[in-house]
Amino acid sequence: MNDRSPDGEAVWAHRSRLRVIPPVQPRKLAKVPFVELADGRLQGVVSSGSDISRVYVSSIAAGTHNYNCSTNNNRPCGGLYGSPCKHLQALTAEAVLQYGLDRVATYLRVEVPEGADLIACLSGGHEPAPAAMVFSRFLRHLAYLEVPATTVPIPEMHWFPSEGAVH
């Protein structure tokens, strides 16, 4: 039985225990610690290659495919010469690892011919976008790791079965 199969309507309508969001694939997080498909963009945070305490905020809008890359203080990335910089390339490559090509391409609304690179199929240009919001979502993301574990039972978690055994 597969919840996400095309004939799954009855299953979806009447089941309480479902994994609505497919689990993401593990990947190395050092270079691109944060990737998400949210607010109509593929967006994330890319570590600077030269300065360990600096990060870049990179994003690509769904539909228009306009892109932006800047430091978290809104200083524009020096690598944006009319085409996506290496941070944007790293962002899309890691997004494909994390979510799979289909999910990223569908979200961005882009056709990727078989064997082609996703970033080569994007047609947008540079368009400034606020980095602060993405960066604060990243900080919020990191803050989860500071929340202490608890041994008080959370019965509501029965609605969220784990899945993914595919070894």
């Binding site: 989860y144 790791l145 039972p153």
Partner: peptide
Amino acid sequence: VRTSVTAAKVDTIVG
């Protein structure tokens, strides 16, 4: 009986 441990995490911590 049941006994539980619940931890906060992010989506990239899996498996």
